[in-house]
């Protein structure tokens, strides 16, 4: 087996604020504007991709984040092996893309997922995100795509003061440094 090397391999805490990269998990981008798509996914993963903007749906194994009216990001809530990831991807690809019900694209290494916990996480994000987190932080499961320090991010509110942040791998080290720097000045 090949060595697996993520970008950050780190976790940090500042007071009650903790930051950590979560790996290995599966991430898959779904796109479709087909009517049967939702039921197909429901059958395959026992989870329905949300149609309401800025929301997500979750079960024990997966979260599906709304990205746009025809685009979703699925990620596994638990760490899973490369083989399991492969099986899931193939299963989805064969049952969606191969029968022309939309696209299934593995983006596991495109995104780096960072978990942020602590009562000051929104103070931290507000240092460089123009997004108004008022409703986002009150509603568990909220999803938003916005900018953080001029970098594209996807944010997923998992519980009170606990969220997952997705950033493109190539930007992850840069944003990680920024987050750590900002966390020192809360």
């Amino acid at each position: 087996m090949l060595n697996f090397e993520t970008t950050l391999q780190d976790s940090k805490s500042y007071g009650d604020l903790t930051l950590s990269e979560v790996e290995p998990i599966l991430k898959i981008n779904l796109r479709s504007n087909k009517r049967e798509f939702s039921t197909k996914i429901g059958k395959l993963l026992s989870i329905i991709p949300p149609i309401e903007a800025n929301t997500s749906s979750s079960n024990e194994d997966y979260s599906v984040l709304w990205l746009s009216p025809d685009e979703w990001l699925i990620y596994s809530n638990n760490k899973i092996s490369y083989e399991q990831q492969n099986l899931l991807e193939e299963n989805l690809f064969n049952n969606i893309s191969n029968i022309n019900q939309g696209s299934v694209t593995n983006v596991t290494d495109h995104w780096v997922m960072i978990n942020l916990k602590g009562y000051k996480i929104y103070d931290l994000l507000s240092k460089s995100s123009p997004y108004d987190f008022k409703n986002f932080k009150m509603k568990k499961g909220s999803v938003t795509q916005t900018l953080l320090n001029h970098t594209d991010v996807i944010l997923h509110n998992i519980y009170d003061n606990n969220l997952n942040l997705f950033v493109r791998r190539s930007f992850s080290e840069d944003l990680w440094l920024w987050i750590n720097d900002s966390a020192r000045f809360l």
Binding site: R31, S32, D70, N106, T108, D109, H110
Partner: peptide, 12 residues
């Protein structure tokens, strides 16, 4: 057109 685009620049 039935076409979907997804960027995978960082994945690969």
């Amino acid at each position: 057109l039935d076409v979907y685009l997804t960027t995978v620049t960082d994945h690969f």
